[in-house]
Design a protein around this nucleic acid. Structure first.
Lengths: 149, 149
DNA sequence: CTAGTTGCAAAGGATTTGCAACTGA
DNA sequence: TCAGTTGCAAATCCTTTGCAACTAG
């Protein structure tokens, strides 16, 4: 999905909720859309400051919440009490491996795990809404460094 | 594992790190060992206060960290920025389904998912240390309530 | 116009830390 | 004895909120 189209969808989403598209909201969406990395609210504030697209910290938090609610972004805990966001490009859901050495994030997807989850939920009469799978460990290059040391 | 034995192991763990077994530490371990539920640091403080086993909030946090480090407790994020602890009784690892309605936690375990995770990690040359799998949704009784409403 | 937005600064909640007074081995 | 502990309060970190001044439609 191209940025313009995301913006259109966002506008529609806002209108449906009786909300308005404003410059800060548009800036934040564009910014989120133009990175392919996971980012924190704080990084978003920094980016906007750099590019003198203005949006206060408060507005960034408020807008990121809206974007998650609207299904434009997903958020995950970084494991230290901070939320990491990433945009959803109509891509299929994926899970994460997080390197304990360099914080690198490797994305992966396993159909088998997905369907096992569904089976398990069904078995417990649990109505699945979402899930999080995080593998923690060391990426190839951090393993080498650790071996050297 | 019985409480006494956990205490022994904890003492050994502490000694190895040049730390001491103290009354607050012992109280916290016993308390953690005597509940079969997930609990927060705050609940632990409340319990200790009730039973006039004294330990300040600071000490509770410091001790819970030690217990996690020593493998006596595991901690997981409750999804709202608070850590939930649970003791490990030499039980096998398990994962969680968290009810979005009533916060109930259902534990489960799937060998198949476990081994798929290992496969995936290996495929990415990722050295697995730990993992977290959380299924979010609605438990059977909350589904009924939602249907009624 | 006017309901919805923004920025600011203050408030919040969870957790951590500095420090001086203790205490277990 | 004396390194390790504790409690307290202050400090942090991330995130949310109250509010008066704006602004999109």
């Amino acid at each position: 999905m191209k940025p313009e189209s995301a913006l259109k969808r966002f506008t529609a989403f806002l209108r449906e909720k009786g909300l308005r598209l404003t410059q800060p909201r548009s800036d934040i969406l564009m910014m989120a859309w133009s990175t392919h990395d996971h980012f924190t609210a704080d990084q978003m504030v920094a980016w906007l400051t750099e590019m003198d697209g203005k949006a206060s910290r408060a507005t960034v938090y408020r807008t990121l919440s809206l974007l998650v609610e609207g299904g434009f972004l997903s958020s995950m805990d970084n494991g230290q009490g901070t939320l990491l966001y990433e945009h959803i490009l109509g891509h299929a859901h994926h899970d994460h491996m997080v390197c304990l050495g360099c914080s690198r994030i490797i994305e992966f997807r396993s159909e088998e795990i997905e369907s096992l989850q569904e089976e398990l939920a069904a078995r417990h009469q649990f109505q699945l809404v979402d899930h999080t799978l995080r593998l923690e460990g060391y990426c190839a290059s951090c393993q080498r460094q650790r071996n050297d040391a």
